[in-house]
Nucleic acid binder design. Structure first.
Lengths: 237, 237
DNA sequence: TTGCACAACATGTATATACAAGTTATAATA
DNA sequence: TATTATAACTTGTATATACATGTTGTGCAA
């Protein structure tokens, strides 16, 4: 339907598959205009997305340089689910659902999920196994007024897939915070800590399209298995 | 000069200073068109920047919702220099230049900075003190063919200010990687580790406007003083 | 041969227009 | 009264045009 998004995805695929070989240069905007039979502005919207996401660098007067994206990065950047992440990793992964329950929001959750005292929320605790080692502990909390039903099957498979495709929720943006803390007893119990005395915690607050808060997550990683990769652009002047 | 950037900065200031009070809603695009006396597309470019950087969320049919930005975050996100960061912190900070020298690139640096064997690069080692404690160790390496001269004064003040304003370099984007490792002897020597057995490392490769690589940096943080805050949007469908 | 001017081409900014599509309040209708 | 249509808003997509500005190679002139 949306032309600029279709073109964006097509160009992403082509850059990933080395379609332009070692040229390291995209065709000019005018060429692409002819190729896709759209206006130049539409091409520019697609190229802006490519630049935002680190696929290309636009150089004035010259053209768009293809940046060689590291394909085997561990992309915690953006909002990526473990399922999506696991497909990028070439290692065997497994998810264990430790808990799936409805609980009353305590004070911390009331604040984090912005719900009223006594309101019930979904609590999901999952252990992530990579190459046979339990190295990630995910604790998710969902606003029940937005996610009325949640099954163990969905938790084992992919909650995001369930939310987006079955419930038609439009997950839009998140605030993330990464810190390093001491492991709790729960961490020691559910993870193969292997003597490590620290744990990396990614706390995320996730919002829908219409700015409603619906999820709070703590993703707890064993430090030696943790890696965060980011592409950042300098602030506009 | 550039209208959409001027409008962007004006709107950022106004949202930060609660110009619209508790309304939590930006004026409509048409209102802003009249207010700034520009076309709607120009307004939309400014608003797209605000949305990208997490200041607003655009909701179709409704308008632009102002997201309350945490003003006291520790924003390692984006490409932010310690100088810029220190002004955000309300704590007293100090920079100690431990080393400023020209060295021959070893194998690792040849790879990271993409220089020839035997080429000389700038090496800068700086300790960052926050509230009297040495908690960050920054090791910077610059391509000498791009940065011919570097002074101790510039290192104590702000290298980025020097590079951007004096050398007119256009710093554009970076790839960052965050990991947790064991401290080295150098870390123990130059930092107040305070018994911590881990260190958080942010490795950055920084590029200019025209895609030339010019800097490799390792920013080494004491784990209890480390915090990374990020705003992320879900991938476009 | 060297250097300079210029044409050709690249991206960047700004505007105007048209229509699609989602939201909301109002007014007409059952 | 309750429901439904509608009008008047909102943002989203797509196009066309004009000119500014940076890059590169060609060819003329010294």
């Amino acid at each position: 339907m949306k032309k600029y998004l279709a073109i964006y995805h097509d160009l992403v695929d082509k850059t990933k598959n080395n379609y332009w070989g070692e040229a390291e240069m995209l065709p000019s905007e005018n060429s692409l205009t002819l190729e896709y039979d759209v206006s130049r502005e539409t091409i520019r919207k697609a190229l802006d997305l490519l630049a935002q996401n680190g696929y290309i660098q636009k150089v004035r007067g010259k053209g768009s340089v293809i940046l060689n994206v590291n394909k085997f990065d561990f992309p915690v950047s953006g909002i990526v689910s473990f399922k999506e992440l696991a497909t990028n990793l070439k290692m065997p992964t497994r998810t264990i659902v430790n808990e799936l329950s409805l609980i009353e929001a305590d004070e911390k959750l009331q604040y984090k999920l912005d719900v009223e005292p006594g309101e019930t929320v979904w609590k999901v605790v999952r252990t992530r196994e990579i190459s046979g080692e339990k190295v990630i502990l995910d604790k998710d909390y969902f606003n029940k007024s937005i996610v009325p039903v949640l099954t163990k099957k969905a938790c084992e498979d992919s909650i995001y897939e369930y939310l987006e495709n079955k419930l038609n929720l439009k997950i839009s943006y998140a605030r993330k915070e990464i810190t390093v803390e001491e492991p709790t007893n729960e961490d020691r119990e559910l993870l193969d800590l292997d003597g490590h005395s620290n744990i990396v915690i990614i706390k995320s607050v996730v919002y829908l399209d219409d700015t409603t808060l619906f999820q709070y997550t703590e993703s707890r990683h064993r430090p030696d298995k943790f890696q965060f990769v980011d592409f950042a652009r300098r602030t506009q002047n």
